[in-house]
Write a protein that binds this DNA or RNA. Structure first.
Lengths: 232, 232
DNA sequence: TTCGTTCTAAATCTTTGGATTGATAAAATA
DNA sequence: TATTTTATCAATCCAAAGATTTAGAACGAA
């Protein structure tokens, strides 16, 4: 499959120039990749990317000068179809998670065999997202852990289930920041009717005012909104 | 490696009894697995799991009677160390994502080769999380897409940055559903002072009332809270 | 020192929000 | 059929929220 594709253009970024040289040789040895650039600076890398539009960027994310993750984020914001593979010395679940979250298409450890790196480039170059098995495991453990608390919350009695469909409509509009007049206008009913509904909602959700009602709704999976504990 | 481990105990759940028989034979042929049960009902499965504590559960998630995802969630809530592999007819990204989110340790398509299923069981049995390469790709695309909007949002001007630290404290208490009296009491300042702060907050966030202020705060990464567009 | 900002506070006033009671009509359900 | 639930609306009434103005004290920067 690889031999039929045009050569993929690869850019290398690693603050350690020895590593950089090593990786460059390694990738260059593969017939199907053109190394269009290699730099020790993330800032230079971003400019090179704008200029050469590489297909693949191998980005070291353990750099002192500029955070590699931040660099990835900036590159992603350019909206090019450059696909980034994070290179890291650590198999830390949080690092892996954050890298994938901001759009890295792969994550490879520096300690991994060079064949592994080439394989990752092959896969990502083919449009896939590639995480080595061991790192993928880490990722999913972290991912599942970050949603565990949320599941527990939805386990306890959800007072939202007691709302009638009309009350849900009203609450929906409340969660959009509407006041009585706004809701009345949007539902084509009188303001007093809205007040009645809102009061019933307060009773059912056991809250005292609209802000608390809105907070309850958001924290208990109202509509298709969900709060997650995942942070960047 | 496999031959040194004790036999893993496997439970099979599929509403199609033909499939069920087929899978049972397939798994039974592997020397290292004991099929401790096979049922067409998710509800029966949950009882069997409580009774036999299998190591692995193969759960069909395309069942009419009871939603397989819901069943997985219930099993996860039992807090056992049973690891669940989702069996599905669809490689839908959303389905895969939801299955992994609620704790499935693997996701295998029914159309995949039987060797693939066995491999998945092997990997999950070994404590890993296993997603076939193609599905893993799907998952990550969905995952990255679900965080993309969020990144864009944090990119545009965040009015929260204009708040003073005192105003942030007040807003924090607002997002907890406090009224003026509550905030005044907690900050040991007068109610009128709180009103002043709140009014300044409204000006800076360009909103009309506390509910809108709270919504703005939650939607723009106030504190360590982050809203995600990901839903179960 | 002077200027700007922040935090504090009060006074005043208008609007909105929330509680309560009561009532009608349609629709679902027993 | 009888009963309950739901959705609708009105009229109060009080409390809370919001807008506006003014002002003193503390603090840091120009």
């Amino acid at each position: 499959m690889r031999e039929f594709k045009r050569k993929s253009r690869v850019l290398l970024v690693d603050d350690n120039s020895d590593h950089l040289r090593g990786i460059k040789e390694l990738v260059s040895l593969e017939g199907c990749y053109d190394v269009v650039g290699a730099t020790t600076s993330a800032n230079v890398a971003i400019n090179l990317i704008k200029k050469y539009r590489p297909d693949i960027v191998l980005m070291d994310i353990n750099m002192p000068e500029k955070d590699g993750l931040q660099a990835i984020q900036e590159i992603e914001k350019l909206g090019l179809d450059t696909r980034i593979i994070a290179l890291s010395g650590y198999d830390d679940a949080d690092l892996i998670f954050r890298a994938m979250k901001i759009g890295a298409k792969g994550y490879v450890l520096k300690t991994m065999a060079s064949a592994q790196l080439i394989y990752a480039i092959d896969e990502v170059s083919a449009g896939k997202v590639y995480l080595p098995s061991a790192l993928s495991s880490r990722f999913f453990e972290y991912f599942q852990r970050s949603f565990k608390d949320e599941a527990v919350v939805s386990d306890e009695e959800n007072l939202l289930t007691y709302l009638t469909s009309r009350e849900e409509e009203v609450l929906e509009l409340l969660t959009q920041g509407n006041n009585y007049k706004g809701i009345a206008g949007k539902l084509f009913i009188s303001e007093t009717t809205v007040k009645t509904h809102v009061n019933n909602i307060f009773q059912k959700l056991q809250v005292n005012d609209r802000t608390q009602a809105v907070l309850y709704a958001l924290n208990n999976g109202f509509g298709n909104r969900k709060r997650s504990k995942v942070a960047v």
